[in-house]
């Protein structure tokens, strides 16, 4: 079931300059367990005269205890700045939860490496928490340019081991996520990734290289409707056909895509 609600902002946090974490209160009619990790929300930007369409933002976390939906947003333009200007008690017009998320019921997949870059780490928190709850082994591999780019580390730490990389070496290992030593020292059954597309393609290639069979990536194509109606958000699949990222994705097994990693 998809919903269109005006949700009350319960809390606004600023994990760092230029980012905002919104916690939105979910009404009683919403069944929290229906929200899949990797699904997204379409938000209408308030008081933003140059924005017209909704803005897609991933589910960062669902807090069952206080019934809040968390969104971690990077301010990059007028729409995202309007979300950042919200205060507790304000309302935000949301259509949710959309698309197909990360797999949580894979049989015989025990160990997971969740690889995120920049604000792409956002959906991995909720995903990792659910896997952890099921008793799966979760390792987060989070990368940023500098240490300030790495956010929510205490939250990630609750659900698994956290490995870090920064390009300047200020925190964790120096370099890109694909250069981290954990790839060589441990085996994983599944890799899941979200972040800039070049990073995800490199992660998929790395996963293939070290012999990991299952790799999932969450795409961020431009969207208009978010519902599979307009066909604006397409990506080429492995057969060369256009598929809607908003409806068939945003999470894909990379074998479904035209990426070269598993060919």
């Amino acid at each position: 079931m998809k919903y269109s609600h005006s949700l009350v902002v319960a809390a606004v946090e600023r994990p760092r300059e230029g980012y905002v974490l919104l916690k939105l209160r979910l009404p009683a009619e919403v069944s929290l367990s229906d929200i899949e990790p990797g699904q997204f929300v379409e938000l209408l930007a308030p008081r933003a005269p140059h924005t017209f369409l909704r803005r897609p933002i991933s589910v960062n976390f669902v807090d069952y205890a206080d019934r809040t939906l968390w969104l971690l947003i990077h301010e990059v333009g007028e729409g995202t700045r309007a979300f950042s200007a919200l205060s507790p008690g304000d309302k935000l017009d949301c259509v949710y939860a959309l698309g197909h998320g990360f797999p949580i019921d894979l049989p015989e997949a025990e160990s997971y490496l969740l690889v995120g870059g920049g604000v792409g780490t956002a959906p991995l928190l909720y995903y990792g928490s659910l896997l952890h709850e099921q008793g799966r082994k979760v390792t987060f591999l989070l990368g940023g340019r500098r240490s300030v780019d790495l956010m929510q580390l205490d939250d990630f730490g609750r659900y698994g081991r956290v490995c870090l990389t920064t390009e300047d070496g200020s925190t964790g290992e120096r370099g890109f996520v694909t250069a981290h030593s954990v790839w060589a020292t441990e085996h994983f059954d599944v890799v899941a990734t979200c972040g800039p597309k070049p990073m995800m393609m490199a992660v998929a290639a790395k996963a293939a290289e070290v012999g990991i069979d299952s790799c999932y990536a969450s795409l961020e194509n431009l969207m208009a409707c978010g519902l599979g109606a307009c066909l604006c958000c397409v990506e080429k699949n492995a057969d060369g056909h256009n598929v809607c990222v908003c409806k068939e994705g945003p999470v894909f097994n990379v074998r479904q895509l035209s990426w070269q990693s598993y060919k």
Binding site: F52, L53, L222, A224, C230, C233, V234
Partner: peptide, 18 residues
């Protein structure tokens, strides 16, 4: 259909080339 990108937001509307 056409290749991605197929959409651009404009002031008070959008362009598409699906």
């Amino acid at each position: 259909g056409n290749d991605y990108p197929r959409m651009a937001e404009t002031t008070g509307g959008m362009l598409n080339c699906v």
